[in-house]
């Protein structure tokens, strides 16, 4: 194996550990005990007391419902933000290669996804077909 290839492999493997594996274990560490406890696991007296204390604090309004907010953020807000950025990134990278074919093709794919008239394969085939047809059109490519 050549050195440059080895360096690239090490860099990408470390990247995967940093951006994909580590966050998953960090989330696991910071979860509340209630989520980590399996239903058939016996609960200790200290855990019951801790939960009662949290419930009392929540009921009295002294503790904000941070858990719900975090869950709402991770399950609703963040995924939508990621998919918005995905869509914009794909559109941006394809438009920078071939503006008009990409705009027309991605608009068609987006409309097909929204209308639910075509499933993934037909929509992708249609969109890709439009893209390559327009890309080979001298009027659009100049």
């Amino acid at each position: 194996m050549n050195d440059s290839a080895t360096q690239a492999i090490i860099a990408l493997f470390l990247t995967s550990l940093i951006v994909r594996v580590l966050p998953v274990f960090l989330v696991h560490l910071f979860r509340t005990p209630a989520k980590l406890t399996k239903p058939d696991t016996p609960i200790t007296t200290a855990q019951i007391a801790a939960r009662q204390n949290v419930i009392q604090q929540k009921l009295s309004g002294s503790l904000p419902l941070a858990g719900n907010r975090v869950r709402n953020y991770l399950t609703e807000i963040l995924p939508v933000a990621v998919f918005i950025n995905f869509s914009v990134y794909i559109a941006w990278s394809e438009i920078s290669k071939a503006p008009w074919p990409a705009v027309i093709s991605l608009t068609a794919i987006g409309l097909m996804a929204l209308s639910e008239r075509l499933s993934l394969i037909p929509a992708t085939l249609a969109g890709t077909g439009i893209y390559f047809l327009l890309r080979n059109n001298p009027m659009l490519t100049g």
Binding site: F83, F86, S93, A113, L114, A123, T124, G127
Partner: peptide
């Protein structure tokens, strides 16, 4: 491009559902 098309379709679909 086909991979971009698939990911774009899935992203729009996910956005719509969510």
């Amino acid at each position: 491009y086909p991979a971009s098309a698939v990911l774009f379709f899935l992203s729009v679909n996910q956005l719509k559902v969510r």
